[in-house]
Design a protein around this nucleic acid. Structure first.
Lengths: 110, 110
DNA sequence: TGGATATGTAATTTTTAAGTTACGTAAATG
DNA sequence: CATTTACGTAACTTAAAAATTACATATCCA
């Protein structure tokens, strides 16, 4: 696993990484804690963690030889922007439809 | 480009496909209209469109020999659920923090 | 009706992400 | 202080997505 710099969307495209985020929303976990929840090797988990960290989805706190992974909001921002962009689109589309319908009703009543 | 069935997250992981969705939020476009906005070959665009369609991000309307791509809300649902799951997480985390702070203030005032 | 246009599909190649094994290092522990 | 534990990293392999080229088909138009 070379370390490509993945963008926000590529980061959450991986099901394992999404599962990690969900796990971390319950508890902060060490790399080994995380690895217990997956079938893959520990180094693989370690690399996923690095990717999540780089992309701002988690922060990491070293305590002795352990690394705690803590969910972090930053990574989600770009996703939220994306969604909200299209949310606005749907809302405005709906409004246009409403206007159209109202006009039709008005015409009928005249 | 074989046609693997990509999940919602994989679909938007591709920058070209995200760009297509943005373009389609301005206007409905044919395959060739879309292709004009990209460096890649037309068949490549065609395949991206198929992927977007399969995943419910667009609907397609054939008019003669042209295919119009129209933005569709369905594909975005899973993304919204994902985001809202973590949104709730941040909100509840914030509330816990508030409670904690309030308790500390109360203690001071006693 | 014949050529141009708009598109899909199949075969192949290229690219890249994801996984594994093997190994190295620093902290804890008996 | 030797060993175990918790991790990182490098080298390599595997798998899968993305792009291209070449070709097929259906519609439109002169």
């Amino acid at each position: 696993m070379a370390q490509p710099t993945l963008d926000t969307f590529q980061v959450i495209a991986d099901p394992s990484r999404r599962k990690m985020l969900k796990l971390l929303s319950k508890n902060s976990l060490t790399i080994n804690n995380l690895a217990d929840n997956f079938d893959m090797s520990r180094p693989a988990v370690s690399k996923h963690v690095k990717i999540l960290h780089t992309a701002g989805f988690i922060s990491i706190q070293d305590i002795g030889r352990e690394r705690y992974c803590i969910l972090k909001q930053d990574g989600f921002n770009e996703l939220q922007e994306f969604i909200s962009y299209f949310d606005k689109f749907w809302v405005s589309k709906l409004k246009k439809l409403e206007t159209l319908l109202n006009n039709k009703l008005d015409n009928k009543n005249n």
